[in-house]
């Protein structure tokens, strides 16, 4: 089977953010991550495109994405002191949305840096 080759892929496992990785992937998973270190290989090879988890969970029960977004917005809106935290394993674009959301909520905003 032919694998799709992606040159100069970026690894976001550690702060080195190596941008010279060659990935060999089919539709479901990455088979090879050339030039990546042990940590990077594990990072790329352990994620698949399978539907391994439900779209969303509300109180432990499976739910749709739309329901979960409504529930999340309700909880955040009702709170007096909501906290937006983490933002490590995500993109800058998502981080920007988080900052704006925390601003609208009048809440707290923090990342791993403070640990």
């Amino acid at each position: 089977m032919d694998l799709k080759v992606i040159d100069n892929a970026t690894c976001t496992f550690c702060g080195c953010v190596c941008d010279d990785i060659q990935l060999h992937a089919d539709e479901n998973r990455i088979h090879q991550a050339k030039k990546a270190c042990v940590l990077g290989k594990a990072w790329f090879l352990n994620h698949t495109a399978e539907r391994k988890y439900p779209d969303a969970l509300i109180d432990g029960h499976e739910a749709t994405l739309d329901e979960a977004i409504e529930a999340a917005a309700d909880h955040l809106y009702k709170a007096d002191m909501p906290l937006v935290y983490g933002m490590s394993n995500t993109t800058c674009e998502a981080q920007r949305e988080c900052v704006e959301m925390a601003d609208h909520l009048g809440g707290l905003l923090d990342s791993h840096t403070s640990l």
Binding site: T12, F13, C14, G15, N89, T91, C92, Q95, V99, T113
Partner: peptide, 16 residues
């Protein structure tokens, strides 16, 4: 460490 934790610093500095 932790992937894009530097990005979080940069984005928060830029916005706030």
């Amino acid at each position: 460490g932790h992937g894009n934790v530097t990005g979080a610093d940069v984005i928060m500095r830029w916005q706030t």
